[in-house]
Amino acid sequence: MAEPKRVERPLSPFMIGPYYRPQMTSISSILTRITGHALVAGALLGVWWLLAAATSEAYFQTANAVATSWFGDLVFTGSLWAVWYHYLAGLRHLYFDAGKGLDIPTAEKLGWACIIGSVVLTVITILLVQ
C-alpha cells in the first residue's frame, strides 16, 4: 500500500554564502533574477505616467511631478540600469543555451561584461535622451 505520508521536498536552497563562496558566475546569475523582477517598479511608474497623460492635464501634472521628482529619477535610473543588466545577462543566457561560453574563465569574463557593460550602456542612454 502506498503510504499517505507527505514528503517534504526541498525548495531551491540559498547556497551563496554559507555553502558556496560568492563568485562572479553565481552573483551575475542571481542579479539577472533580481533585476528582472525589480523592473516591475519602473513598469508601474511608467504605465501610471502614460495613463495620466492620456486622461487629463491635471492628472498628468500630478503623475509627471512624481515621475520627474528625485523619486522618479531614482526609479527610472535604477530601472534603466536593471534593464541593461537583464538585457546583457539575457544575451549571455542565449549564448550559454547555444552551448558556448560555459568554461569558467569565459563565464567569468561574461559576468564582468554584463556588470561593466550595463553601467556603460546606462550612462550612454542617459546622455542620449537628455
Binding site: F60, N64, V83, Y87, G90, L128
Partner: peptide, 27 residues
C-alpha cells in the same frame, strides 16, 4: 527574450526622450 532584445533599446530611446516633456508633446 529575442523579441525584447530588438524592441527594448529603441523603446528606451523613445520613452527617455518623451519623459519630462510637456503633455502635448507626450500626446
Amino acid at each position: 527574450a529575442v523579441g525584447l532584445a530588438f524592441l527594448v533599446p529603441v523603446w528606451l530611446y523613445v520613452f527617455g526622450k518623451t519623459l519630462g516633456q510637456p503633455r502635448d508633446v507626450v500626446l
